[in-house]
Simulated assay, not measured.
Amino acid sequence: MSTHTSPQLSVLDLVPVRTGQSSAQALAASLGLVALADRLGMTRYWFAEHHNMPGVAASSPPVMIAAAAARTERVRVGSGGVMLPNHAPLVVAEQFAALEALAPGRVDLGLGRAPGSDPVVSSLLRSSGPTADVERFPQHVRDILAMMRPDGARLRLTTGNLYDVRATPAAAGSPAVWLLGSSDYSARLAAELGLPYVFANHFAGQGMEQAVRLYRENYVPSEACPAPRTFLTMNTVVADTAEEARERALPQLRAFARMRTGRAMRPVETVEEALADNPDHVMTTTVEALADRWLIADPDSAAAELRRLAAAHQVDEVMIVPVAGSREDEPLDTTPGRARTLELLSKALAT
């Protein structure tokens, strides 16, 4: 890939909740953002799954995907991802087969094996029992793939009889399935199953290069995905000036730093709240270390860095996590800083 070639641009949304903002307002802001991504011609827009976090409203990807599909025309909508140990495979297959019927050819099912929450909430999510068996993750992925196919899956019962299971009664197509992960495990499994793969670079500290190399070296071609396919994820804040980008990045940098250092979580601060605080040494050094791994820049610098990263990792797509914070005087049902990131970066990559 040439360093002069611009990668395709996609979005991962955690649906952040800022100080004083209701869940309804946070959801409205994200649905406005996906409509903007659609108008800007972005490739895909995924919603994450996290639970019991005061600063994150992305707990139910299928609900958000359905709402996003109804408000868009061309962008692919999907999960980044559904945390499979929290859900019965048949339920996931039925939800995403229904989404595919609502938005044919536009649905991605990204699957992960992390809990997406703390141990207490994980136990509540898995109280039905069988879904808690993380060791069955590979088989559950295979089951979902089979059940979403138009011809469904055929199970052999203990009686010896065969039983047909279909996620929808008359499917015309299937969602695209991606495996997500932050370790070698998911990379190897995606290669074995012939599935596209994404390393969660936006929150993992290290390991992307090795995981992607293992994935590509061990890839077994499949009918749905004849060659290995992956892209890069990156926490991103783009503003008209580098100084504005740094200020907009600070609230989420501090939220990530609180999580990394075991501090109490809270709604995402406004820019003014973040700037007014006098952090201790641990918070300051953690924020600085995180900022070094994020893309925080003016439009031209950000576009140049994305082109460089895409070329270095041999990918033609970058999925940004737009993490720009809001200022106190900005409406609670919109997200101007994140919208500006998409607008400026899209324009800069097009030139």
Rank of each mutant, 00 (worst) to 15 (best):
S128H: 13
V141L: 13
R340D: 14
S346K: 05
G325Y: 08
V237P: 06
P228W: 03
G160N: 10
A297V: 06
C225G: 00
S60N: 15
N161L: 11
F256H: 08
E94R: 12
S23C: 03
Q206L: 07
A311T: 14
L27H: 11
L349D: 03
P299V: 04
T233Q: 05
A200L: 11
G112A: 15
Y45D: 02
T236V: 07
F199G: 08
L31T: 02
T261F: 01
A37F: 13
L27F: 12
V82S: 02
L102Q: 12
E272L: 13
G181D: 03
T230K: 02
D108K: 11
A311S: 15
V91M: 11
T284S: 15
L345E: 09
N201F: 07
P331I: 11
A69H: 10
G105M: 11
D164I: 01
R136H: 07
S186M: 11
T72Q: 12
D292A: 15
A348D: 04
D298Q: 02
L99F: 10
W294L: 05
L189Y: 02
E305V: 04
R44A: 15
T285G: 02
Y215A: 12
C225D: 01
V92D: 02
G337W: 07
A249D: 02
S186Q: 14
E135D: 13
A204K: 01
Q210N: 13
R308I: 09
G116F: 15
L155A: 08
A66E: 08
G105W: 12
N161P: 00
P267S: 02
A311M: 10
G41E: 11
A37S: 13
G173W: 02
P89W: 08
S79V: 12
R229L: 13
S2H: 05
V238E: 11
H4Q: 12
G337C: 10
P169L: 09
F137E: 10
E247K: 14
L189I: 01
V177D: 01
L214F: 06
Y219K: 11
R156N: 01
I65C: 14
E272R: 12
L345H: 04
A291F: 06
Q314S: 15
V121I: 13
L145W: 01
L349T: 04
S60I: 11
L214I: 09
R266W: 00
P251S: 04
L90R: 04
P130K: 14
P104R: 07
S22K: 06
V134R: 15
V323F: 06
V318G: 08
A167S: 14
Q210C: 01
R293Y: 04
P175V: 14
L349F: 06
R248T: 00
M53W: 04
V238F: 14
S30D: 05
G20V: 10
A264W: 00
D118A: 14
D118H: 14
V238G: 09
R213P: 00
D240H: 09
A304T: 15
V82C: 03
S6E: 02
D300E: 14
D292W: 00
M1V: 13
V11D: 07
E49F: 10
P54F: 08
R263K: 09
S326E: 07
V141I: 09
V134M: 10
S22W: 03
L162H: 10
R293L: 13
E100F: 12
E49R: 06
L40D: 08
S2E: 03
F137N: 09
L193W: 03
